[in-house]
Nucleic acid binder design. Sequence first.
DNA 1: AGGGAGCCTGAATCCTCAA
DNA 2: GTTGAGGATTCAGGCTCCC
Lengths: 403, 403
Amino acid sequence: MKVLHDDCLTLLPTLEEDSVQLVYLDPPFFTQKEHFLRTRDNSTEYSFKDNWRSLEEYLSFMQNVLSQCKRVLKKSGSIFFHCDKAAAHHLRVLLDSVFGSKNFQSEIIWAYKRWSNTKKGLLNSHQTIYFYSKSADFKFNTIYTAYSPTTNIDQILQARRRNGFGKVVYHRDEEGQVILAKEKKGVPFSDVWSIPFLNPKAKERVGYPTQKPILLLERIIQISTDSGDTVLDPFCGSGTTLVAAKLLGREYIGIDSSIEAIRLAEKRLTEPVKTDSQLLFTGETSYLEKTDYERAILKSIDALPVERNSGIDGFLRSYIEGSPVSVRIQKQNEDLETAKQKLLRASQSKNCAVMILVRTHRTTEWLNYAQEEPKIMIIDSYDLVIEEWLERRKTIEVTSADK
Amino acid sequence: MKVLHDDCLTLLPTLEEDSVQLVYLDPPFFTQKEHFLRTRDNSTEYSFKDNWRSLEEYLSFMQNVLSQCKRVLKKSGSIFFHCDKAAAHHLRVLLDSVFGSKNFQSEIIWAYKRWSNTKKGLLNSHQTIYFYSKSADFKFNTIYTAYSPTTNIDQILQARRRNGFGKVVYHRDEEGQVILAKEKKGVPFSDVWSIPFLNPKAKERVGYPTQKPILLLERIIQISTDSGDTVLDPFCGSGTTLVAAKLLGREYIGIDSSIEAIRLAEKRLTEPVKTDSQLLFTGETSYLEKTDYERAILKSIDALPVERNSGIDGFLRSYIEGSPVSVRIQKQNEDLETAKQKLLRASQSKNCAVMILVRTHRTTEWLNYAQEEPKIMIIDSYDLVIEEWLERRKTIEVTSADK
DNA sequence: AGGGAGCCTGAATCCTCAA
DNA sequence: GTTGAGGATTCAGGCTCCC
């Protein structure tokens, strides 16, 4: 339970051999720049340098760190090495050479959505964590997750076997009764982790650059240690790893070369703050407010769906007359006038020159809104057109039959 | 447009320099087997040196391949290298040395869900594709996706600027009116792609275990080439890349050292109709058959897409008057009469009481087919309705301005 | 030409105001 | 007071532009 201030190459050799269950490393990524960030109240600026004379210098430094990490690790211990695209491949070559390629366990992909930028090409939205063990006999706690909603309950509960043709079928006894499968715990964790990026507005943020979400560290600690085990973070920064370790009842050792970081980590440890991600808590689907039907209509007019707005369902991708075009789909149990008013009100502040209202059923057939309100275009949904055509056809048939 | 049979190191030098826009590499399995055998028996019997030597051989072979790929690539061209995770880091080091690390564009993560196994540790559920360009001036078509559901529309639509204190605020004019941002088309694609593995049924039909999902290749081809460009796959296997290229209107060159693979690829290419409908007629994987636009229209009228029928694009899920309803969407460069004839002919044997023809552009406005042919319902596409509404609006404005 | 300052972007939060 | 809809804010990365 200590937070130590010095270069980790100085301090690591002072730690006892075979004493640590988990090493988590979040070193500089070889971005070749200095990272700054201010606290929300603007009082303090934290920074760290990630400038190196060459890749060789960087790798040689990391090699020394890794050798020390291996020394202090218990035989059943593991190392999780956090890196990004800048040097991930070189670092994995290094890890292979220090820990042995046979001790490679996983390439964990931390995938997240984040605000975009103007990069040509694909938006970067993942970082890599290499998971190596010290030996084949490493500690690992399998965590099970819920089955995906598309898995049906029979698949989970019923035993299966191959029938005469080699096809897998549900197992039943002679009387046709279902045979239950062995107890199942869920789906084991995969190596692709979708964890929200620590949002700029999150209270969990302490103003230290490159801060990682506590949730990410909790997961690493849970799969590789038991309570009472020791966790080491040689580049602890603001101390996220230590906070996670403390919350989970693990011992911890943190090292950082910046005294500001150490002070911040110590402060966080006395009063740890973990905010629950609203998104993670409620799930992304809770933000989705449209039916499949509405989405299909939006897609077929190449409109972008928009959530969190009760008046507007989407926007056309292209502007008309220099301004955006809002789209609303008439809801069930909503008459056209109401739909129109909602669309108008919501679009008011958006400077729309034209609005599109998709009529899905006919409640006020006699009105001709297109004339009345020249900014609103009313389109009949395909369904409505088909329905009315069929009705008209029936009438015609009846009429001709009458003759 | 050729499929060549020989070792790619023999054939690549015969290809013209600066002639190819995209190289997709999915290297052969035999080297992987070697690698897997070593990791599977998990013994330390194999000395590091032995393994290193075979790895070196492999890398030296790949280095030659990559040099040739670079030679045949146009200056604006790109290479997508699909890696086996066991050697991904070594291959990226190689790619760095051949193409230059400054031409590294993305590490694409292909993430998928998979049935769990009993492996200790995390479930592998991703593969890596490295994306390098030949120069800084590479071709790239950005694909835009929907905004996150947590995003509110103000930040998309409103322009922002810095106020006196350097803080970013929404831009407003003197009267406090919102100032619009430039037109936005959505969020650019990220480097983490969730694409399901091939549907097991489809897999069964082709019998090619290493086959990649067609959607994956389609996406790669779309972001890095335009129609008419040439795609090269030096390890083409069953030819999925070539089929995708052909159906997207790209030229293609495929190479494989296995004569069985070449024969299969050639067969798929000469009769893509049959083979691919077999491959793809298993529900959601029908990505190549229809344009997104057509699929969206079919979905919004709740119609099931039909693959590879030159007259019919889909059927309504529900029958009308006891018989199926065929749907056709008027193609670009096709006049309504032609569309109608094709639909009629294709529907003849299907006993349709009603047919739906979606008009997407107006070539023969004066005709009223609904009267003439009571079995065919003609629906104007949303796009067409919008377009004509805007034109009418313009006319009205001009007229009122005249007054 | 090269380096640094500043701009643009949107995810997910916080905050405000109205009902 | 309570709720919640929707407006406002922050951050980092890659770009462009300017000196």
